[in-house]
Nucleic acid binder design. Structure first.
Length: 299
DNA sequence: GGTAGACCTGGACGC
DNA sequence: GCGTCCAGGTCTACC
């Protein structure tokens, strides 16, 4: 079965997929031959399907959306669910025009509009993105990849016909495990109690993470909600705010400190304040300006 | 409000 | 092969 989902222009699937490292975290994957974004997903009906997402070019040649293929046939409701999830994952209705208007004047960002950059690849649920963001903290990227793969392979729902391919585990599934198992089998280390507490709070209904996706809360309040989650500090909250389409904060990690040091401080050590000051002029767009800054000439 | 130390893992390194 | 050191954010206790 094949669905077509339109995007607000400018749009480029490869720009979204290449926006950050999420595509390398299971169950996301990229087809090495075609570049298609693939992912196993469980629908509300319980059916587990493999999604294959490819650029859908308009007659003029410019990207105008994506096609989504599944081997299984879908009911109308399932098709709508897939459309909604893909729309969220790729940010298809996002309008970055105000940012592009500013970025055009900055040589380090000027090509973003032409390249249709600015959207960040997201997971279908905020729960998955919070878990993955926790898995990025205080570890090398290879560790994040390993931990995400472990969660999917050990707790995800299998794809019928190809059970090695699995979904990201639901909060219910993770809530049913325990800290020691997450430490010993998924090798989450000290992050295990954070992920477990998050899963149990979401599974019990005590925490409605998904409601934050379209929240009207001011960014400052939204940030407080995220910081209240165990394992989510300043960097993680800023990263999650970017995923939610709020760019008021810069996710300052060790890489950000290094790049800002080289770009503006001659290699002298800098702190969080210097990174924030470097992008202060971008106001509500400072996270995007930082994320897509062209560091290619930076020492 | 600011800071030091602990948390946990895997990889790099020296022996 | 083994032991040691280090990188990577967040939390907690303490000042």
């Amino acid at each position: 079965m094949r669905l077509t989902v339109n995007a607000r222009p400018p749009f480029s699937l490869s720009a979204v997929v290449g926006s950050h490292g999420w595509v390398r975290l299971a169950p996301f994957a990229r087809d090495p031959d075609t570049g298609a974004l693939v992912r196993v997903e469980q629908l509300d009906s319980g059916q587990v399907v493999a999604l294959r997402i490819e650029e859908e070019a308009d007659p003029g040649g410019a990207g105008s959306g994506v096609s989504v293929a599944t081997e299984a046939s879908l009911t109308e409701a399932e098709g709508q669910e897939v459309t909604d999830k893909v729309g969220w994952m790729l940010g298809l209705d996002q309008d970055l025009t105000p940012f592009y208007d500013l970025a055009r004047e900055e040589p380090k960002l000027a090509r973003m509009e032409e390249r249709a950059q600015g959207r960040l690849l997201r997971s279908p649920t905020l729960f998955e993105d919070v878990v993955k963001t926790i898995l990025t903290t205080n570890t090398a990227w290879s560790g994040t990849i390993r931990m995400a793969e472990a969660l999917v392979s050990q707790y995800g729902a299998p794809l019928p016909g190809d059970p090695k391919r699995r979904t990201f585990p639901t909060p219910d599934r993770l809530a049913g495990t325990d800290e020691e198992t997450l430490r010993a089998q998924a090798r989450l280390g000290y992050r295990a109690p954070y992920v477990l507490a998050l899963a149990r709070d979401v599974a019990s209904g005590e925490l409605d993470l998904e409601a934050l996706k379209d929240s009207d809360l001011p960014t400052v309040e939204l940030r407080k909600r995220l910081l209240a989650l165990k394992g989510v500090g300043g960097y993680a909250a800023a990263n999650l705010l970017m995923i939610l389409g709020r760019y008021d904060y810069v996710p300052v990690d060790s890489w950000a400190l290094k790049m800002v040091s080289r770009e503006w401080y001659g290699g002298e050590p800098v702190g969080q304040a210097e990174v924030e000051a470097a992008f202060e002029r971008w106001g509500e767009w400072k996270g995007l300006a930082y994320w897509f800054w062209d560091w290619s000439d930076t020492g």
